[in-house]
Design a protein around this nucleic acid. Structure first.
Lengths: 174, 174
DNA sequence: AAAGATTGAAGATTCAATCTTA
DNA sequence: TAAGATTGAATCTTCAATCTTT
């Protein structure tokens, strides 16, 4: 091994990974758009906010959670504010900071969309795997992210060149 | 189960999948860009062409291979032609069709980039998994794509949602 | 009419530069 | 000086419409 090609098993894992991600995210995005007029990216923003105390997070923390650059998140939050699902709030203790916060409409939209999304994740992904396979995947992804399992000690960089990649996402600062 | 949240194992598999994909593709893209001035998407185009007889493929076949829309591929091939790595050729037997074909420069660029890419895929992904885990992943992804393994018979659609059957009907994007 | 491919217009995401505050 | 956030410009991708050929 280690010449110009991947071994069959390695190739199947790598190409399968790419194909599943593409098909799955397109499908879940389309389902959310069709049923609730919300993209998968937007859903993830609502999800992390809904899981946060008072339904709000600092922009940077939110950007790290949803795997978007800072500027990318700024634009997405702009759109969600325009749509009435979020509002911005200033930070009392650090005036450089800004919060994105769920509105009542945002909470309602999230609650409505959540069953659709969960059904999609189960139907198109989890239900095809036994509990054992799910455990195996979770462990494998953890190894890839945090290092270990093979010849190489370190995992994927937290900021590959500029992107945040740890799971679970770092907690907001008090 | 089956209420409002995923079980821990399922959650780890799903979120891990998203995080690994994001971190991994950003990292591989950055490495190819830095070492060979070529994006991951462009690399994949060169890869599929290099694997084809005479180094050429129909635009549609290429689009399906690299997980891009038809128009998206048209634009990418435009850029690669401008960069001298590809050229277009007409289809003798079906004059609606068009080929994208590797130039000598395209072959050279691909050969130069390939070791970088393979090293990246191994270092950041495969090397963290044992051969057993790689097999497990490959099998799991195959189940997800082609159906099976769980409660649900069908796999992921090749093309997402043609269905206009949704409630409420789509209108604006979130 | 349907299939292969391209184009115009619009949307989403990022980098680099900028502004404000710490 | 650095950190949090936003903006302008550029890039990439897609959808819908279009053109050509079958």
């Amino acid at each position: 091994m280690r010449e110009g090609v991947l071994e069959p098993g390695a190739l199947a894992a790598w190409r399968g990974f790419l194909r599943v991600h593409s098909a799955l995210t397109k499908q879940l995005d389309a389902e959310l758009l069709a049923s609730h007029r919300i993209s998968l990216s937007s859903y993830e923003v609502l999800l992390f906010l809904a899981d946060s105390p008072e339904g709000r997070l600092r922009m940077s923390d939110l950007a790290d959670s949803v795997l978007l650059s800072r500027s990318g998140l700024t634009r997405l939050v702009d759109r969600l504010c325009r749509g009435g699902l979020l509002e911005r709030a200033s930070c009392e203790d650090d005036r450089r900071g800004a919060y994105a916060r769920l509105t009542d409409a945002g909470v309602a939209r999230f609650e409505a969309a959540r069953p659709t999304h969960l059904r999609g994740v189960r139907e198109h992904f989890l239900d095809h795997l036994g509990a054992t396979d799910q455990e195996a995947l979770g462990r494998a992804f953890d190894l890839v992210l945090n290092g270990g399992g093979g010849d190489v000690p370190g995992g994927l960089p937290k900021k590959p060149l500029p992107s945040g990649t740890s799971f679970p996402p770092p907690r907001a600062k008090g």
